Simulated assay, not measured.
Amino acid sequence: MTVTDETLRALERQRTVEITTTGRRSGRSRRIETWRYRACGRYWLTGSPGPRDWYANLLACPEFTLHLATLDLQVRGRPVTDPDERAIVFGEIVPGLDWAGSLGSWIAGSPLVEIELG
């Protein structure tokens, strides 16, 4: 996929996004709403601490569709498990969220996936 200015503008405009993953057990398409963040100059999917089916699906099959208002993008997710990288990324995301709770809880328990555009 070629990353165009239109793609980047669409990503910047939309924080709440829908994604379609492939079910890890069923193999069926699963579409859900989640949050998109920008940190360290890249785009991420995450959520408050706790297990997420979409994250488990991306671990099993990292290719997914990112649905934006005007575009459907075929992308790849890169799950981030390295504690140091998680601390850096969440260190940019969490302080801007007044409802988020502690940075440590996000580092320890939140899913974190980099959206690889191409």
Rank of each mutant, 00 (worst) to 15 (best):
S110P: 04
A56R: 14
W99M: 12
V89D: 02
L11R: 06
D82C: 03
A10H: 09
T2C: 07
I115E: 02
I93P: 03
T4V: 12
R76M: 07
L97D: 12
R52A: 15
A100Q: 08
G101S: 11
R78S: 09
P79S: 10
I88H: 04
L59R: 15
T2W: 03
E6M: 08
Q74T: 14
L73Q: 09
L68C: 05
E92I: 04
A69T: 14
T21H: 06
L68I: 03
G23K: 11
F64C: 07
A87N: 01
T34G: 08
G47I: 00
V3S: 04
E116H: 02
P62Q: 07
P79H: 02
V3W: 02
Y37I: 05
F64K: 04
G50T: 11
I32Q: 10
A60W: 03
R52N: 12
A39S: 12
W35G: 06
I107M: 04
V17N: 11
D84Q: 13
A10F: 08
S26M: 10
A69W: 08
T22K: 13
L11S: 06
S48R: 15
T7L: 13
A60E: 09
L66P: 01
L97Y: 13
Q74L: 13
T46K: 00
H67A: 06
P62W: 02
L73V: 09
L103E: 03
P49S: 12
L58F: 11
T34C: 14
T16R: 15
G118T: 13
T22E: 11
T20M: 13
R52H: 15
C61W: 07
R52P: 03
A39F: 05
G41H: 04
A56Q: 12
D72A: 15
A108S: 13
D84H: 09
T81Q: 10
P83K: 09
T34F: 04
E85L: 11
W44C: 02
E85F: 00
E92C: 07
R86G: 00
E116W: 01
R36G: 03
L66H: 00
S105N: 15
P49R: 07
A10L: 11
Q74H: 14
G96P: 02
Y55H: 14
G77E: 02
T4F: 11
L45M: 05
G77R: 05
E33V: 13
G91H: 00
Y43G: 05
G50A: 12
A100R: 06
R38P: 04
G41P: 09
R24Q: 14
G23V: 10
S110K: 03
V80K: 04
T46Y: 00
R42L: 06
P49D: 12
P83Y: 07
S110C: 07
A10T: 09
V17Q: 10
